[in-house]
Nucleic acid binder design. Sequence first.
DNA 1: TAGATTGTTAATCGATTAACAATC
DNA 2: TAGATTGTTAATCGATTAACAATC
Lengths: 224, 224
Amino acid sequence: MAAPKKLPSSKEAGTGDSSSSERKIPKAVIKRLSLYSRALQTLERDKVEKVSSTELGEMLGLNSAQVRKDLAYFGQFGVPGFGYPVGELREKIKAILGTNREIRVALIGVGHLGTALMAYGGFGRQGFLITCAFDVAPEKLSGESRVPVHSTDELEQRLDEYEIDLVILTVPAESAQGLTNRIVNAGIKAILNFVPMRLQVPDYVKVHYVDLAIEIESLSYYLK
Amino acid sequence: MAAPKKLPSSKEAGTGDSSSSERKIPKAVIKRLSLYSRALQTLERDKVEKVSSTELGEMLGLNSAQVRKDLAYFGQFGVPGFGYPVGELREKIKAILGTNREIRVALIGVGHLGTALMAYGGFGRQGFLITCAFDVAPEKLSGESRVPVHSTDELEQRLDEYEIDLVILTVPAESAQGLTNRIVNAGIKAILNFVPMRLQVPDYVKVHYVDLAIEIESLSYYLK
DNA sequence: TAGATTGTTAATCGATTAACAATC
DNA sequence: TAGATTGTTAATCGATTAACAATC
């Protein structure tokens, strides 16, 4: 295995400037931020120009205090007695999330689920572009797909070539860890993992797990 | 101060008792229960006969105290100085989850994602059987599919006919609430919802949300 | 017995909600 | 000004972790 490349250069070492003075943002807040973004998108489409924390909370099933507190982590976006300006707030949230630009995504594992995710419109709508895909047997897939499907042999150079930011992993469990090691070494820092297993990654890599079998199994507890 | 209240729970062995006297089980515990189940399945396959809370925790990235506490909600499954018997514990967890029997599932909305989920092996492996599917245009789909695809016109009678326990919802947002009302009226009590919107349901209906766009958008926060 | 590991209580940590002065 | 709603602090609630007596 090749040695890791460019880690984020050590600005943080010793200086302790930016990150130490900022309040730490809870993970749950980040997740709600993109809920807010989508709700605001809907309001914008409907030509609504302002929204209160109570209204936004009702749309999403959240407490109004929670909405205000979440937003206040990042600045003063609201106007007392008035509410929040819809368009402006959405832009600010997108900037915070970093989704005010196109995010380039690669998908590894073009099976049933992978194919469905490539065709799924929900990603593109939020500014995510599945740019290329990988599979062990690309030749039998490339015709079907709207995006190029490459061999996993070419993983490292293609991730670089396409300037990929984020990887969606939909491969068999046996190959998941090996591929993860390779993409991490290639500099990928965010993985959306559909493989039902824990991935070992360095601390600076963020993995989100989507575990369909667990979702359905834990649901069945409530059937009784 | 009064008499001691802790007693070795030998009376637990019988039938389930009234919910009012039971401690309430946190939602997070239920979700981990099915993680335990799957980990134990792996151990069983590998002919491992006992496991400690520490080992189980390491497999899943959980604290050993949490593992013990989670399991202790439901009884005394472990042996001090020894650990937990793998096969027995798995059986008990499956019984608690209610997945020690076949759970019959219907899928509504045979688009890309629906098709992928029908083909996805992970459900069947945990005892879930996708028995039938529904779509507004069943005729162009039924040939492709291994399970019968019915018109949504026949929703109520077919859910009854197939004795469906649980519904997976993969339809466009516009039709989601209407269909939800119908399946709830037909007696369905658990929904796995892939539609990116909140569903209005009575309190006794349990909905789990899988929101792919949110997962990926909130990931991108960590790219910077 | 000696060693290991449970079940459980107490301590800690984090997240949600209520309340209200500030302010538009 | 009068009414509305923010931002923020304090209170509450819930979940995780540490510690250890019980016990196999």
